[in-house]
């Protein structure tokens, strides 16, 4: 009986530790998501509302590769300098970009949207299907970089992708109900 109790006690301790680890991990993930939901803090507080709304720059002007290939890509510092060589001189956030350019340093943004390595998401196919960027990325154009930062709108989990692929909403290229998108495993999991 005694040895049994000891074994049982040890087991409970291990389970508790393991369970505790799971709880802590889950909490951390949630915290991260909460932070993500507030948007991660970026090295430069880039205001999409100024650039995409007030200045009416198209998403593709900066995120050049979205209609070409897999990744949408982030613009180079040089591209920012097209305007900011004169525009916004003296503003603290703009000065961060200008000094990165002068020192030949890249800007390391904190990634917001990420799918795991075993998933291959191709932007180009979705743009070709007529989707607008905001249909997946939410109202990014309203972010100001300070109080409203870019964050994950959709969960980016497989179920979310499949829900859309099974029953795609209307896009500028096709009306609703015009058939489902591919749901074969190898389409996304090469």
């Amino acid at each position: 009986m005694r040895p049994r109790l000891i074994i049982l006690g040890l087991l409970v301790a291990v389970v508790a530790l393991g369970g505790g680890a799971v709880v802590v991990f889950a909490a951390a993930q949630t915290l991260e998501r909460i932070q993500q939901n507030a948007g991660p803090v970026q090295p430069v507080a880039f205001p999409h509302n100024l650039h995409a709304v007030a200045l009416q720059l198209d998403c593709l002007f900066c995120h050049r590769n979205a209609d070409q290939g897999d990744a949408a890509t982030i613009p180079s510092v040089e591209q920012c300098m097209f305007c900011h060589v004169v525009a916004g001189k003296g503003l603290p956030e703009v000065e961060k970009v200008r000094s990165a350019w002068e020192q030949g340093q890249p800007i390391n943004w904190v990634r917001v949207h990420r799918v795991p390595d075993h998933v291959r998401f191709v932007h180009e196919a979705h743009i070709r299907a007529g989707f607008d960027c905001v249909q997946c990325h939410g109202p990014v154009q309203n972010t100001d970089g300070k109080t409203r930062k870019v964050k994950i709108e959709r969960s980016l989990q497989m179920g979310d992708c499949l829900a859309c692929h099974r029953d795609p909403p209307a896009t500028s290229a096709r009306p609703a109900g015009s058939g489902s998108a591919p749901t074969d495993c190898t389409i996304c999991h090469k």
Binding site: V14, L17, A21, V22, F25, I74, P75, S76, V77, E78
Partner: peptide
Amino acid sequence: LSATSLGGALYAGCSFPAKELLVQSPVRL
């Protein structure tokens, strides 16, 4: 029971490196 608790402990230790969360604006392109 052992498997679950071990799994939990391992799961806690496995995550992706922080630097994979960076995406860079190269200086020139």
